[in-house]
Design a protein around this nucleic acid. Structure first.
Lengths: 191, 191
DNA sequence: ACCTTCACAGGACATTTGTCAATGCTTTGA
DNA sequence: TCAAAGCATTGACAAATGTCCTGTGAAGGT
């Protein structure tokens, strides 16, 4: 029988009783967003960290030249927000929107901190998730340092199979830091 | 009067009594490394997270082609280690070495976890440091996505003034993800 | 003081990637 | 159903960056 996806993720790190999980869940609110809906506008405060139950979101920024850069995708079981705006309670420099109809569990910073205090296991959970996120970003940077566009593309393929079926190639290019024309040429050579 | 640099950093986030700080300090060991000394070899276990008291370290990786990529520098008051190897207690894929004679306070994972349990304020401290590190890495990735080598260079200049005086330009290039020739051309145009 | 190594600049050329424009195909919506 | 918009591909050319090479001066070790 299948468990709640959030519980599964938490119990990968710390064990919870049924009552504890219900308690945890009480700190979240559920949201349903439409495709293309902007969940966090640049310039607004980031009220929530979103845990994606179903759907697909992204965090992006448009630079002064009008070019869009995708910092992160968020599929099922991913956490997604503008980390800086959320944790520092400052105005967002990034945009979060939905590439598909999306259902989330949404957590305010206040509730995150409350939860961490009330249930120390949850602080451990959040800490490990953040540490793992840090490690993942370091790997992505190493990828930028040591790989060309082609290797980065294949790395992304192997890291998130299934992503290609869900997002347009132009967005993959934007995540990789190349133009869609360059990405198109790369995939062409495969033959 | 000047305080211990570690205490200053911790008290930016949580306040400590003298006794508490002594207690914290007891979990660290002091190390002195020579210039060029390798502190963590690729393939070894990462026994420590290093807090740099004085000196300059770096984390790097050489790729299969023999090219060296610098993931991070660590000047005074920075924490530096192979995060993945340290936190997962696995063999390191990165190398940590000293670009200058360096004095560190070194913390084992065991002591870090002990400290977090014994003094919850320290867990808060570590959590915030990790969160801020995560945010900094996101910014560096956005820089790779949206900036060319020249802009990345000037961004680095403004972020860490003083770094240029302490490390050879070839290493700056390696951190930026370009060749030294490219960096040389950039600095030339400034005139 | 001498030799070796390192750091840096620069030139010539190759490769990669970006830019701009044109095209065809699909999806969307009135 | 048709027009419009979105998405991907491709070609021609430009710009950025990498590669390989040389030369010069400074720094370090013996």
């Amino acid at each position: 029988m299948s468990q709640h996806p959030l519980r599964t993720q938490i119990e990968d790190i710390v064990k919870l009783s049924d009552a504890e999980f219900d308690f945890v869940l009480g700190h979240f609110q559920e949201n349903n967003f439409k495709k293309h809906q902007i969940v966090l506008h640049q310039g607004d405060y980031a009220h929530f960290d979103f845990f994606v139950i179903k759907g697909l979101m992204r965090v992006s920024r448009v630079d002064p030249d009008g070019k869009e850069h995708i910092l992160q995708f968020g599929m099922e079981n991913w956490w997604i927000t503008d980390a800086e705006a959320f944790h520092h309670q400052t105005k967002s420099t990034l945009t979060v929107d939905c590439l598909e109809p999306t259902k989330t569990l949404s957590l305010t910073l206040e509730n995150k901190e409350k939860l961490s205090k009330e249930l120390p296991k949850m602080q451990t959970f959040f800490f490990k998730k953040t540490t793992n996120g840090f490690i993942a970003l370091q790997k992505r940077i190493l990828c930028f340092l040591s790989s060309n566009a082609n290797d980065r593309y294949h790395n992304l393929l192997s890291l998130y199979p299934g992503l290609m079926q869900r997002v347009p190639k132009a967005m993959i290019a934007s995540y990789l830091g190349v133009t869609r024309e360059t990405l198109s040429r790369l995939t062409k050579v495969e033959s």
